[in-house]
Design a protein around this nucleic acid. Structure first.
Lengths: 171, 171
DNA sequence: TTTCCAGTTGCGAATACGTCGCAACTAAGT
DNA sequence: ACTTAGTTGCGACGTATTCGCAACTGGAAA
């Protein structure tokens, strides 16, 4: 889920390169985010980080996420609020990608496309808007769940995906 | 900000058409959302609605928003969390649009494009994903603020938009 | 290598936003 | 008018995040 667009330097390298004070907590947190499978929320990140340093505090996690976000080393996601209002984080990749969230099984897929890049370029030109951050999230029903839904012949119809929303597998 | 894509029926019409019980509160809330300039958050909606019915409760606002969201009569936005974690709402329009949020002045612009429609179609085809909901938000610097920023000749550079974030004008 | 201090952390309380259970109320079908 | 399933107001609750402040520490300077 993480591999298609690796970033050039590690988060830790990038932090020191930018003259940010490298505390033990920041190293652990950056490395944890970097090596995470999938998308982490603040609570999961804290939990993982505490396996390396018992003492890491929740506030530090939030402050570090804020820092990384401002430096644009990570992206913040909502993942369509499938599971509460918390945010998810991932190390920035070289190319922006769309997040597809299945309302039925909770699976998250990623998707990149030249069309997406073209759309961004068009917007910058047409609106004279200097883009700093992009977030495209799409909710619906994934291929697996569509396949499973024999009951729903009229998949193109309105209410098709409303039934049976299921808690997603994990964070 | 609201006019480019009007929807066919009013929210109230749509509710009754779908057999939803039309309470006084729902009428007021639906009409308030519909006639709102710009984007409302739950608190502003409550405040506006109370001008028509003192007794309307916060919980009813949230429940009604949830209802309208599930019926896909309104869209929920984050507007890049320019101002806290609250959500904003708008009556659905006939065509999906992008929201452009200026980190500097807080202005929200909307943008529609055939390219956006093509991207969605591509995703549905390529990933066999049945799209129910789309949210594309872009943060950066609007044309006005770019024009004003004489100081920043290297607008294409990294940190350009980080300075002087300003509280947005209103809800 | 020690000193020093601006920047960072842990802590616990506080805030923001949204949700819930339950008794009273009401839309709308008969 | 009667009836009742669905809705509302209320206040307490929950979850995610932020804050103030004293103690701590990375890393530059001596």
């Amino acid at each position: 889920m993480k591999s298609p667009n690796p970033q050039r330097r590690s988060l830790v390298e990038e932090l020191s390169r930018r003259g940010v004070r490298l505390t033990g907590q920041r190293k652990i947190l950056a490395e944890t985010i970097q090596s995470a499978e999938g998308h982490l929320d603040a609570a999961s990140l804290l939990e993982l980080a505490r396996k390396r340093d018992k003492g890491i505090n929740r506030a530090t996690v939030y402050r570090t996420l804020e820092l990384l976000k401002e430096l644009r080393l990570i992206d913040e996601l909502d993942l369509m609020h499938l599971n509460g209002e918390k945010h998810f984080y991932e190390a920035k990749t070289t190319v922006d990608h769309v997040h597809l969230a299945c309302f039925q099984c909770g699976r998250i897929e990623e998707y990149t496309s030249p069309l997406f890049e073209r759309l961004k370029a068009e917007i910058e030109r047409a609106k004279q808007f200097h883009i700093r951050l992009v977030r495209l999230e799409i909710g619906g029903r994934c291929s697996r769940c569509c396949a499973k839904a024999q009951s729903c012949a009229e998949c193109a119809e309105e209410e098709c995906c409303k039934a049976a929303p299921v808690k997603p597998p994990a964070a």
